[in-house]
Design a protein around this nucleic acid. Sequence first.
RNA 1: GGAGAGGUCGCAUAGUUGGUCUAGUGCGCUGGUCUUGAAAACCGGUACGUCGCAAGAUGUCGAGGGUUCGAAUCCCUCCCUCUCCGCCA
Length: 455
Amino acid sequence: MLDIKFIRENPEIIKKAVKDKQLSGTVDIDELLKIDSEIREIELKLNDLRQKRNDLNDKIKTVKDASERDVLIKENSVLKPQVQELEAKLSELAPIFDEKMLWVPNIPASDVPYGEGEDDNVEIAAWIPGIGYLDADKIGKGSVSKAHMPQKLKYAPAEYEALDHLTLGERLDIIDVKQSAKVSGSRFCYISGGLAVLQYALLDLVIKKIISEKYAPIVPPVLLKEDALYGTSHFPQGKDQVYKVENKYLESKEELFLVGSSEPSMFAYYMDKTLDLNKMPYKKFAYTPCFRTEVGSWGKDVKGIKRVHQFDKLELNVVCKEDQEESIFEELYKIDEWIYQQLELPYRIWKKCTADLGYYASAKQVDMEIWLPSQKNYIEVSSVTNTKQFQARRLNIRYKDENGASKYASTLNATGIPIGRMLIAIVENYQNEKGEIIVPEVLRKYTGFDLISNV
RNA sequence: GGAGAGGUCGCAUAGUUGGUCUAGUGCGCUGGUCUUGAAAACCGGUACGUCGCAAGAUGUCGAGGGUUCGAAUCCCUCCCUCUCCGCCA
């Protein structure tokens, strides 16, 4: 949520944001401001009336004489219907205003490139094991960087045609989507054996790293009331992406939703709190299952475990001061890069354009993609987002600055490891010509073995 | 599933014949006095929102209605939290 004062004073900036984010038609800023000024007018009148009423009440309290008292009471009675009328108008307009405010998006940061769709995202870095970062002139927009895809798998000859993760997974009996379809329906999976061990190994590696970077672990709830989801702006826009839990047998009568990411749960941890300036930035990570309906993606990515209704994710969340946003943003995606480099996985980084910034709260976002040899393309694995004060304003997360003034905090989030997709990337990039999986070197001390095979 | 208690401006509490509640007190935090320094003691300040340059005004005592000239206080509806028993990972 943006500050209504800012919207009043800068309507053109907001209109531009709506347009640049390709959200025209979702909210009419002029209409919003019209209702806002109506509300302000009513509030002003109400304030006056209430003042009169309170003054009279003060007099009534002290006056002992009965007839004099009656006069005052009568006088006050006249005010009552006026107050009620205005209050009624106000309670009519307030929800309309609130609803409209929910559809005002955050403003893209100044360094976000303009774009009308994902094709306008800008590639800012690409890294290939053995080579390192590609030169700036070799990266650019999608078609350009495709010329610089990795030529060969680490453990297979150049002429070897890479298999996809599902074929490999089924052969090695480590991925099973047939039985999960029977048990839970489409878009679920069983991950077992060596691959499951790899999942824990990956966690071991990454958790050790992020703890050394001063991220504190937290185990959050994954069923939330809607407040938390509105707070992070996953609602109302993404409401169709989350599962609502049938609550007939729950003690609480409020609706509960399964998280699509631990982000709402983690930031709601700070909801309605005033944070300690000296402890900022607050850096935490959580590892939870995530649940998504994938409405709108039906028929897309149906093969394997790339897009499933339930997946595990390690997420990094930071609450900080405004002047810490930039350095934290960088720190977050450097952590992701560290992970990919440790695993020697080819990856590239995109700066998202205005049209593709993710959700409403997002002011700036970068996406990380890892090479998938079977697709001869990259798969999106991670994104780092700065929402500035947008979420904090809705969640009411504040701190007192050096002068004691109350300020809204800034929130940033990053995917640490999306387990499913990381496993896909490892399986595919580390296959050998026998269709076995070599365990990445950095993970071997955690897995205790160096090969996933059929024997 | 059964029974009970309760939701007050960081935390803990006071506040139930409606008007000195513009919400008291303790703790915590904070400024000051004192002190070589600290502690203690004492004095002061400490919820949030809105309007306003300010003075100030106004709203919020879980939420929403209602009664009343006037509601933290009375009535109604709803929500939430906790405790005990039962069942159970």
